[in-house]
Nucleic acid binder design. Structure first.
Lengths: 336, 336
DNA sequence: TATATAAATGTAACCGGTTTCGCTATTTGT
DNA sequence: ACAAATAGCGAAACCGGTTACATTTATATA
């Protein structure tokens, strides 16, 4: 492996000068610069990033924490796509992604410790719950961090979120336009920010449409397919049932549809179902799922954008990004 | 940040001794060891892994290359699940995953260079084509590498693959048992190992069942949903058509089902469709897809297993792992 | 008791870069 | 023509660990 010393020796200069050339610093004559660059080319030299990282405390890598609180039963289709967006955006900037594997931080390792260990320049967090005590230290630290789907801010902390309130409103509005007046909802995890916002949007929409809020029609679905299934089974036992169900996630919506079908009823004829997220599977289910789409890839690139701003421009306080959502009409809703 | 020097100073010993304690080396008195450990605890000291990596050339991280030749239209559901399996297995061993972001290696960066850059201890490669010239250097190098779905071996190189031949045979056998004698196939990418093996299994199965091989019924589907759709549309134009189609991937199978449905025909009544992989979506399509399941999570853990053996036991030549596949009967095939 | 042996610890080089600071030689200004 | 400024470069410290080798101290052996 060629090192900076080898290059220096061949060029008959000091490592300092080589370093200057590598990093495009001034104070090197054009002649010397050219010579060194040629040798670098010739020897196919690339600076060792570990050594570099040690002396600069920069690593050109972004950590990803990916906590699986929302055990959806699926393979985290949502976050996977967000990460895909990050990959694309970060790749262009020369950052790689360090995927922290341990699923049980908090006990032995805190977020901060993991970050320091790997020397990541910043970190993206998905699926964290706001009340995670571990988060506190992180947001107080100077490690650039961007949260997905939770509005946590702080020192070098910001977030990317979809407009959940508006998303709920669009869903309800759409169902309303189809003639529905009895609209139930499947909650995700009620301690999560997204769930709360979606609930808020749901309530606001009902209000502005002059529909009374009926808490008997709001069920807990835990953001999982199974949870959606169970919740819907319970809903079906009600004497007075809604005609449409707004599910706070596609996973739950899929579970809901299964429950309905198993009960001998039909979607959308007997129940209109609308989801949230637009995960891959929602295109494939039958009937295909009408849903409020989050722009997941864009979320990923936004995360990258915020992180890079904090890192490269050393900005402590960066405005979060709220992304618009979009109603995708498919087959699971119909007029009443 | 506390360093080893801080600890050494407090304990009034040299950094060497502290290092010995950290790494559980002998030659330290119980007394000293205890004292140092207490200080480490107290100060919550953890060795900086970058520094460590620089001096040991070990990083406790595994690189992942994930080339997107098979642009399936989906978000690589297959490899994502394999990676998930890796995560779980590697997490237990203290390794993190470095996800190489740049999608265009080979031009500016070779696999080897990327690995050296990040000092990864080993690397997993998915979706590579055998004839990728870049691979050659990697397999000649001493970087432990494990390929998924391609039988590439070499110095510190091995692979994990599903039993594709048997998979095809199971598929054909099953269709045969259902009464099918006219069985077409959608190829993936014919230069890929998996495709070739699945083709081989297909031919062998036909032979042993005394069914002549008809190359007019073998179409190119490029491993993508779109490709499967197009191929099937072409197949439907044939005067003499098969009654069942074995698709070398679920993505193509889904495309095939769409084509059939759009043509006013029905699955499985008019055509039995069987896929390969068992991706998430195959459970959700209607009719749900009968398929040959690969144990993706197990593939991931097998990859980890091989890598760790090469890394920690310094074994150059490790037998590859061939995993069994399983027929999953769902709704897309029926008796004829 | 002197000596060989083993146990416990330290010194200093090293991994491969970056960076501060200082030195020399050349320009520039007046 | 001389002081001041600047361009170009290098020596050496540093980042935070590991490790080969040397050294001191304790224990065993003759």
């Amino acid at each position: 492996m060629t090192t900076i010393k080898d290059i220096a020796k061949i060029a008959d200069v000091s490592t300092t000068t080589v370093s200057r050339v590598i990093n495009n610093y001034p104070d090197v004559s054009d002649e010397t610069r050219k010579k060194i660059n040629e040798i670098i080319q010739d020897k196919n030299y690339r600076p060792n990033s570990v050594a570099r990282s040690l002396s600069t405390s920069k690593s050109n890598s972004i950590g990803v924490f990916f906590t699986d609180h929302f055990n959806s039963g699926l393979h985290h289709p949502f976050f996977r796509e967000v990460i895909y967006g990050m990959e694309k955006a970060l790749g262009n900037k020369g950052y790689d992604i360090v995927y922290f594997t341990n699923r049980h931080w908090g006990e032995k390792f805190s977020y901060i410790e993991k970050c320091e260990d790997r020397n990541v320049d910043g970190v993206a967090l998905m699926g964290v719950l706001e009340d995670d005590p571990n988060i506190k230290k992180l947001r107080e630290s100077n490690i650039p961090s961007v949260f997905v789907d939770v509005d946590i801010t702080g020192n070098f902390s910001s977030y990317v979120i979809s407009n959940n309130i508006k998303g709920s409103k669009k869903a309800i509005q759409y169902l309303y336009e189809l003639g529905h007046r009895k609209i139930g909802m499947l909650m995700g995890i009620d301690t999560s920010k997204t769930s709360q916002e979606r609930l808020k949007g749901y309530k606001q929409a009902l209000k502005s449409l002059n529909i009374p809020y009926n808490k008997d029609w709001v069920f807990d679905g835990k953001y999982s397919e199974k949870g959606g299934y169970n919740a819907t089974m319970n809903m079906l036992k009600l004497k007075s049932r809604p005609t449409a169900i707004f599910c706070q996630s596609d996973g739950m919506a899929i579970g809901a549809m299964q429950a309905i079908e198993e009960s001998g009823l039909k979607v959308p004829d007997d129940f209109s179902i609308i989801g949230f997220d637009d995960i891959e599977a929602s295109r494939y289910v039958k009937p295909s799922l009408t849903t409020i789409a989050q722009n997941k890839e864009k979320m990923g690139s936004s995360v990258s954008e915020l992180l890079i701003k904090m890192i490269e421009e050393k900005k402590q306080n960066i405005d979060p990004i709220k992304l618009p959502v979009k109603l995708i009409k498919r087959e699971s809703c119909c007029e009443i």
